[in-house]
Amino acid sequence: MFEAKLTEGLILKKIVESIKDIVTDVNIDISPSGISLQAMDSSHVALVSLNLSMDGFEHYRADTNMVLGVSIANLAKVMKLADNNDQITLQADQEATHLKIIFENPKTERTTEFNLNLITIDSEHLAIPETEYSSVVTINSGEFSKICKELFSLSETVQITTNTDYVQFSVEGEVGSGQVRLGHNDSEKKEDQTILEVSESVQQQFAIRYLNMFNKASTLSSFTRLCLHQEQPLVVEFKIDNLGVLKYFLAPKISD
């Protein structure tokens, strides 16, 4: 038996919106300590990893580990039934064939229920090695979204360079070439801060269209954390207050 109730259901709605363009069918792993999922995009360039702790739920019960195979596209359609102020409860029996999703609005007394059919997914679970990232950049999520969006209109690829003084996003395309450079900024206004933690400089190239898809999660968190290592995929991380973390991994491009 699994049951989890989230008071701020909007968070779950936003999570589904933030991953639906990247992954299609996903195994959701339920454990007594929380909910997690890991899935690659169809071209095996990016990987989504979500971890939600039971502590963030108003009520959480999972007697055993369970795997719930879900079509994210269909889950997104069901989530559209939810009002932004709804509480969301997820329920599944042992050996379940469907996931029951209940939306409740205590103010308007409206309740919506949907039984989403589960599917069997044969997906590969990848082992993500523990990595000591040599550059970690914490940046306002809205600002990072904007930078990626605008640069994508100029080039498909961005080169991210870090050093102890700044992080630089540079593009080169038919239109021309240029860069956005952000220095370390720990101003009093927290939302303006850009925090650089660089032990070793990194220079890598990435497909901007993936970054734009990841940035849908910017509504979940005021800050985006970029973790870089010269030999590893980029991690774009969004912390979800009191509940967990949504991470996207993106394999770098190599210059021709």
Partner: peptide
């Protein structure tokens, strides 16, 4: 996509 590496190159199967 030219020059695009696969995520599977970095993360092995469990």
């Amino acid at each position: 996509m030219s020059g695009q590496q696969s995520i599977m190159k970095f993360f092995g199967s469990k």
